[in-house]
Design a protein around this nucleic acid. Structure first.
Lengths: 350, 350
DNA sequence: CTAGTTTGGTGCATCGTTGCAATGGTGCAA
DNA sequence: TTGCACCATTGCAACGATGCACCAAACTAG
């Protein structure tokens, strides 16, 4: 079907071994003219080495895995694009998988990827426990956990990359406090995931600095038993807004677990006839593409996605290419940045 | 490293061939108890067949390719998720690639995918000419062109899947006309791509039905020489809104080339102090996740993405699995649907 | 002039799976 | 008893690339 290394060898009048040497950059052990002949033959025949054969022989693969909750969420889509760009530059490709935040799917995907010879994966899971993928790590899969920080039960070699969620939430909350807000709500899905808990901690920390207690901070985290999927965030925000604003003493500001949720909250506030930015302030998290297109444009916490993607790829590559040494695990927390737009404003006077 | 078919064979006390027969469903030619023993051994050892080896031997691959302009665009992210779901159900995986609408990258990716043994790809290109990927099709790559309709120069076997863009744009424009608008603008990036042109034709057709001429329809299509990327749509819309609204006789309604662009237009209108839905009506195209979160929620044309993804996968699979027969190409145009929300309203009285 | 070294290139076994051709054992008809 | 068909099972040669071990020729040193 396709042209093989043997045909190239025949065309160039050398052995397949020599062609292989050319392909793998071992050109110091042949005459320059030989090398040239081979390269011409390759070009003439339009030869490309067969990936599967190569991989079977070497055990190495030029494909990396990326497991995200859902690419339908623009945050993950953007991250995927950055990671792909970093990988491409180094000659790797990225196989993208949607887990829908389902541990079983996460495990199944990793198993499939492993069976396909993929030895490095970025897992965007944020589940507190990673025990469902432990067997893979033991088989020496290089695993980078993205959007998550190290937990006690983690395998020693696990590298975690994440934004500093606590700092981010603290920045967001402080911003509201400086604007004079004193009754601030926190809206999230279930607080099961690591980063959502970290954001909540940051929120609390900021309140404490200002001497506020839990009494002033309604937390809305959905039906406890139901874990909201990535596409439910807007609905969740909308519902939360409706319910919070209907209470006797509604908050004047809301910290949302992410931008999708914040957009939902804005929609909910609009439903209730409130003007976001004056009657109610809303802060998001992530700074997705659409954050500054919202009406009003969303004040939010920006994750440094390009830097995070670069870091993830660098660690992945190091793990895959130096398979011998077990890398030392830990957490890499990048600093987020507050982006002030118009969804936040001074607290309304009571 | 991993457990092989030989180890399973040893464990079950049979030959590798028998294990292979079990794996490939040729169970009618062995004793039920043999089959059972093999299956137990497989389970006990946690064996999974090695993908690359299998692929090298059979030439078949369980991976399909998907090339999209950019997953950072939620429209493509959503499509990717639907296609992945369809593929997964049939035991296929999907390798996702971002082309950034660059023909060279499209071709390079297809070459890479081919070299990796991938024989079926969905290409979301919408470029009028597909000659840059012709060599691949000649090598019998099964190619589905998504978001594009057949062109004269296409290879005979090419299957195109798309929403009916002309009908969609016509639905959108008629909706505005029925609301009383008579001065309607069309905002797009360069009209180089097939589907953008189709949408423009639909727009024109609707105007003609109402006896309107080009005079009443400012078209804004950006700097002609510069092709806007997928993430520039919002900026494009914003700029277009600013410029159109600053003219002496501004339009009362705008048909946007897609939702991202429409969101930009809404932002631009807000910048200009206009109330979208009353002062200015805006219709989008695609119905991305965030369309009904916008302020105001966006009236738009919904693409039946799940059905389109299913169709794309079905054709892909047919092409890959029956490699012998050359399928008959053509275009499949699915019907879009008008979704009325609040970004459109009666034309303001002059 | 020979023994040793370097240089440039090749032969071959191998990766894990597959599927055809072949095996030997059994049962049945002639 | 022999010939034949049939059965479950197995041996073996691929698929395409790799890289070690090897080799022949050319060169160097003593």
């Amino acid at each position: 079907m396709s042209v093989t290394i043997h045909q190239v060898a025949a065309e160039a009048g050398v052995s397949p071994s020599t062609v292989s040497n050319v392909l793998n950059g071992r050109s110091e052990r042949m005459l320059p003219q030989t090398r040239e002949r081979v390269e011409e033959a390759i070009a003439r025949l339009g030869y490309r080495p067969n990936g599967p054969a190569r991989q079977l022989r070497t055990g190495r693969s030029q494909v990396l895995g990326l497991v995200v909750p859902s690419v339908a969420n623009p945050f993950w889509g953007t991250f995927a694009r950055h990671l792909e760009a970093a990988a491409l530059q180094a000659g790797y490709r990225v196989l993208l998988c949607n887990s829908e935040r389902d541990p079983t799917r996460e495990r199944d995907y990793l198993e499939e990827l492993w069976a396909d010879g993929i030895r490095g994966v970025v897992l965007c899971s944020s589940l507190p426990s990673l025990e469902h993928v432990l067997p893979l790590v033991q088989r020496r899969l290089t695993l980078i956990a993205f959007d998550r920080t190290a937990q006690a039960g983690d395998p020693a070699s696990l590298v975690n990359i994440s934004v500093d969620n606590a700092v981010g939430a603290e920045l967001a909350t402080r911003h509201l406090l400086h604007l004079g807000h004193r009754r601030i709500a926190f809206v999230s899905g279930s607080l099961r995931s690591v980063n959502r808990r970290a954001r909540y901690r940051g929120f609390e920390a900021a309140l404490e600095e200002f001497g506020l207690t839990a009494e002033d901070t309604p937390v809305w985290s959905g039906a406890a038993d139901h874990d909201y999927g990535d596409l439910d965030f807007p609905d969740l925000g909308r519902t939360a807004a409706r319910e919070l604003l209907a209470t006797g003493r509604p908050p004047t500001a809301i910290v949302a677990i992410n931008d999708m949720c914040a957009l939902g909250i804005i929609a909910g506030a609009r439903d209730a006839g409130l003007q976001v930015g004056t009657d109610l302030s809303v802060v998001g998290f992530d700074d997705i593409v659409l954050a500054d297109l919202a009406s009003p444009p969303l004040t939010t916490i920006r994750q440094p996605l390009p830097a995070m993607a670069d870091a993830a790829f660098a660690h992945l590559r190091a793990g895959v290419e130096h398979a011998g040494s077990t890398p030392n695990g830990g957490s890499l927390l990048l600093r987020p940045e507050l982006v002030v737009r118009s969804s936040t404003g001074p607290a309304p006077r009571t």
